[in-house]
Design a protein around this nucleic acid. Structure first.
Length: 425
RNA sequence: GGAGAGAUGUCCGAGUGGUCGAAGGAGACGGACUCGAAAUCCGUUGUACCGUUUACGGUACCGAGGGUUCGAAUCCCUCUCUCUCCGCCA
């Protein structure tokens, strides 16, 4: 959530930002609510002061008549307060709910635009592979090599689930460890995180845990959800805490399952492993001082590049357009790896995403540090994918397939797999 | 899952329904003493919001949420968490 004290003075800027993000938030309605709230708050506080004053007077020894008069007055005050507070609660809830929908400010360099196409490619790395044969997509490879079983998963769990089998199991674990080693080398503390989190944490991180458009699975009757990413549990880790300035930056990485409802997400671009209800992911997370967040955003991006270039994949780095940022992000870079089986002749497909959320999440979650003057400030929070195993699997299988139907294991993974080739059956 | 105990400020810990934002101690910070340090002594030492704005005033917060009362850390109810014992279990 943004700083609501700035709502009025930065009104035009906020409205412009909402429009740049193609969002539908009525800032003026929120300002009206804020003013109503403020008036009610002041009034009810004044009455509380009166109540306290009245109670103070009753401490003295009083004759019955005066005493009864004070009690009568107190009762009246009590009623007024109750009425004001009921009103206030309604306005307060509406205000908070709406205010939460205001997105974070955006970096001045973030391209303004509605969708994918408007994002800027800032970097192209590696050579897109050429094949002397018609490359298969990972669904075909998964079937022919007996690595992935979508059909059984559909029967057991439903569409968009999958079983990994045979070498794919080893390959996934190899990629997981490969990425983990690189991330740890960069000073991140490894975690295996819970796969379930409370709704209040989801909200603080900026996810919408409920409703039609939510991508999150709720656990019925519990106020908890299956996490869509370890960003949620890593970002909630320090909720409502004041961090020691000297401990910053805090660099964590978390391995978790990721659950996504993906309602209505069918179609050619979401076939196979690309868009599924459950996958595993290693996520990086950084808490840092505000003046350092841009630096650490680049650091995370650099690590992501190290991981994907280390796999020998061709990729591009994209500076995400405002319309695609998501509420909490101030700036977001995606890495899109070349996927030969995507589209007609291969296309880039998103494999990582790193966001600088500045103080947007920290404010909602109450994560602060003490500055040199001793007053509390909100930290900046950043997240980034180290590796999303399902999409990495897509990229590796499709890029390193051979004409005979086998798949070569990238050299950087061989120490982790123990084999250098998945032979055709 | 069953039985019991507890939850107070950075920490420990006291608290009769009004004099409690909260005793006392520890720690931290500032000062005095000292050549310096230790010890000792004096002082300061929460967060959030609202309003005026270097000073300041108000409101709220003693696990959370309700309730009783003119007035609640203190009484009542519900919930959460922690600890101990029993059961179950990978």
């Amino acid at each position: 959530m943004i700083d609501l004290k700035e709502l009025k003075e930065r009104r035009d800027e906020i409205a412009q930002n909402i429009s740049n993000r193609y969002m539908n938030v009525d800032i003026d309605e929120i300002i009206v609510l804020q003013e109503k709230r403020s008036a009610l708050l002041q009034e009810s506080e004044a009455y509380r002061a009166k109540r306290n004053e009245n109670a103070q007077k009753m401490k003295a020894k009083l004759d019955k008549e005066t005493r009864d008069a004070y009690i009568a007055e107190g009762k009246q005050i009590k009623e007024t307060i109750a009425k004001l507070e009921t009103e206030l609660a309604v306005v307060e809830t509406a205000f908070q709910e709406k205010a939460r929908t205001i997105p974070n400010y955006a970096h001045e360099d973030a391209p303004i635009g509605k969708e994918d196409k408007d994002s800027t490619t800032v970097k192209l790395v590696g050579q897109v592979p050429t094949f002397s044969f018609k490359p298969k997509d990972h669904v075909q490879l998964g079937e022919s090599l007996d690595l992935i079983d979508f059909d059984s998963a559909t029967r057991v769990s439903g569409p968009k689930f999958y079983y990994l089998k045979n070498q794919a199991v080893i390959l996934q674990m190899a990629m997981e460890r490969y990425a983990l080693d690189i991330v740890m080398k960069n000073g991140f503390t490894p975690f295996i995180t819970p796969d379930i989190a409370k709704e209040e944490i989801l909200l603080g991180i900026g996810f919408n845990p409920r409703g039609e458009e939510s991508n999150i699975y709720n656990l019925e009757g519990t106020d908890t959800c299956l996490v869509g990413t370890a960003e949620i549990t890593l970002g909630g880790y320090y909720a409502n805490q004041i961090l020691d300035r000297k401990k910053l930056p805090i660099k964590m990485c978390g391995l978790s399952h990721c659950f996504r409802r993906e309602a209505g997400g069918a179609g050619q671009y979401s076939k196979g492993l690309y868009r599924v209800h459950q996958f595993s992911k290693l996520e990086m997370f950084i808490y840092c001082l505000p003046e350092e967040s841009e630096h650490y955003h680049n650091l995370i991006l650099g690590i992501e590049e190290e991981i994907f270039s280390g796999l020998g994949l061709a990729y591009r780095v994209v500076d995400t357009a405002t319309g695609d940022l998501g509420s909490p992000a101030y700036r977001k870079f995606d890495i899109e790896a070349w996927m030969p089986g995507r589209g007609e002749e291969g296309e880039y497909g998103e494999v990582t995403s790193t966001s600088n959320c500045t103080d947007y999440q920290a404010r909602a979650l109450g994560i602060r540090y003490r500055d040199d003057e001793g007053s509390t400030q909100f930290v900046h929070m950043l997240n980034g994918t180290a590796i999303a195993l399902s999409r990495a699997m897509v990229a590796v299988l499709e890029n390193f397939q051979n004409e005979d139907g086998s798949v070569t294991i990238p050299p950087s993974l061989v120490p982790y797999t123990g084999f250098d080739r998945i032979e055709a059956l």
